[in-house]
Design a protein around this nucleic acid. Structure first.
Lengths: 354, 354
DNA sequence: CTGTTAGCGCGTTCAC
DNA sequence: GTGAACGCGCTAACAG
């Protein structure tokens, strides 16, 4: 029923091997023969059989991009940039593009491993892991083994916006990590400079690296300003990386410290929720209370007031990860590159009310 | 080097076929044998070879979800929901989940076809096409052929948020389409009821179905109110589905008609850009001018003022598309289901200034 | 319930 | 520059 390479060969009056050579373009073939083969391919509407091709060649054109939440632009931007870079980059075996596939883990370690297995099954050419990792000892160990096995099988492993996996050093082609600590620190320093002292912090889920690093940056700044101690713990609330979480956490912070003058959120989406809660409480931003986010997602500049935040070059990072995944770019020395964030001071932060 | 099914068979002292049966769980196998096989699999860290399996079975566990822009939550939400539904649904051949892959076309017809070819190569189990289609006669024809060929090869084709492909009737398993016309009409009717007469419309890219349908809804309402004619054309500006486009288009509308009292945007993201432009012009929303969007993306309720818009059940639609793709849900009668939108009246629209 | 036998469709040695 | 032969790893009939 379906057209095979042999059919094309027959029509072009050549051997199957020649058709294969034309399609893969890796061996010299006489121009006239190539012409004939290509016409036969076209006439027959022949489509290469991926599985068969992958089986024979022991590798495939699949590149997997794992994201925590595909509905979150933070991941969407990185994934889109990676996909673009991969598509533009090295053409796959069959001359066509590589098939970049985005896999949504929903932040679940099980699903993450699951997808890795599936990609291993498919003999994926590369895997890009984006976003923060879960800090569970068991999971980290399992991941290290899994990644090592993938690397053994020839799959390139690239981390994007995630710290290097400690135990899997050699397995990883490259790790692009964001300077979440530095960004968090500078953001809080900005508020301290404005004169804020009672600053609430809305953190992400407790067990993630991104959450911890941003929080550490915040606390480093607070402690340097002599604001360490119990207060830090009291003015920190954990939640998910979503709008609702920011809303609820803000109310909780206000309950704990009604005289709060600033709120720092784990990311921009959470910050938006925080703003909503403050408005509902009748507080003006930044006159009564300042708000800051993280990431500088596209909507942040349009928030009212425009959000002070830390810009992460998500697009660039994703594109670079894509190039690393295809081998179009050589890994940074040591395999690890840290990407800095840029403090974007906008209208949502100001001096505290006297 | 790599462990194969034969290795597992040897270790478990059974035939390869039996191992295959255990792994696929489609044939009865004695409990004790299964036990032995599973232990051997575990001992050897065996991972099924996807391509080989797909080759032999002439089908794979891959489900492709095509989106126009992965960085846009509109698509991210649908894709995430579809992926979730597919994962939860029918287990793949190897007992594991299906591998749902999201492919980012960037709105380009070429890339769309490209991905379809790649998925066809992989003998994908199903393909979900999300979002509006490009209305180019050539492309539509090519797509119809392509989809028919996919369907022939046993791939299920599901449309989500896209009108049925006219010429490919039988090829499509199911089409879930949004009532963009009705939504657009009701949105504009809402503004008309408030007393608006000079309403600007910021449309999406001209050649897309979504764009056209929303615009038609708007115009239907306008004409029913006796506001048809040249004015409609003059107060319509086309652009991309992004923030910047909304910003620029708004300035252009204001240039064409300084006394504008309302702006309807192609979607929420565009509406946000419109709000920014209006604010920069010193106009208050909704006191001086009303703004409305479409989709009701998560951030819309947090906009200031909260955005009046048409809510589309993106999550539900995506999940349903996923179930249709796995065969977990039977297609609606005729294969086509229209999903309505809900008018969400919020603070960004009000009576026009007298 | 389990083993045996054939391919699935293609890439890749080798020869010519 | 081209063809012939073999095998990639697995599943799907058949037997038994």
């Amino acid at each position: 029923m379906t057209v095979t390479l042999a059919d094309v060969a027959a029509r072009a009056r050549v051997s199957p091997a020649t058709v294969s050579r034309v399609l893969n373009g890796n061996y010299p073939v006489a121009a006239s023969t190539r012409e004939r083969v290509l016409r036969a391919v076209d006439d027959l509407d022949y489509v290469l059989n991926g599985p068969a091709s992958a089986l024979a060649a022991a590798t495939s054109d699949l590149v997997g991009v794992l994201v925590n939440d595909i509905a979150d632009p933070f991941f969407g931007i990185m994934a889109g940039a990676a996909q673009h870079a991969i598509g533009e980059g090295a053409p796959g075996r069959a001359g066509g593009e590589k098939l970049t596939v985005v896999c949504n883990t929903g932040g679940s370690p099980e699903r993450e491993l699951n997808y890795l297995t599936l990609l291993q099954r498919q003999r994926a050419a590369a895997v890009v892991l984006t976003g923060g990792a879960v800090e569970d000892a068991d999971h980290i160990a399992t991941m290290a083994v899994k990644l090592a096995r993938l690397a053994d099988a020839g799959t390139r492993v690239v981390l994007c916006g995630r710290p290097p996996v400690p135990a899997a050093g050699e397995a990883i082609t490259a790790a692009l990590t964001f300077d979440n600590r530095g960004g968090g620190r500078r953001l809080t320093e900005h508020l301290l400079t404005l004169g804020h002292r009672r600053i609430g912090y809305i953190a992400g889920p407790a067990e993630r690296t991104t959450t911890r690093h941003r929080l550490e940056g915040h606390r480093t700044a607070m402690e340097a300003a002599g604001l360490g101690g119990d207060g830090l713990e009291r003015l920190t609330v954990h939640g998910r990386y979503d709008r609702r979480s920011g809303y609820d956490a803000t109310l909780e912070l206000l309950r704990r410290e009604p005289r709060l003058t600033a709120v720092v959120a784990a990311n921009d989406t959470v910050a938006l929720g925080a703003c909503a809660a403050l408005r509902d409480r009748g507080l003006r931003i930044p006159d009564d209370i300042s708000v800051a986010g993280f990431d500088d997602l596209p909507f942040s500049v349009d928030a009212v007031p425009a959000l002070t935040t830390v810009r992460l070059p998500l697009h660039e990072a994703g594109a670079r990860a894509g190039r690393l995944a295809t081998g179009a770019e050589t890994p940074p020395p040591g395999g690890v590159a840290t990407i800095g964030g840029e403090l974007m001071v906008r209208a949502s932060t100001g001096r505290p009310a006297s």
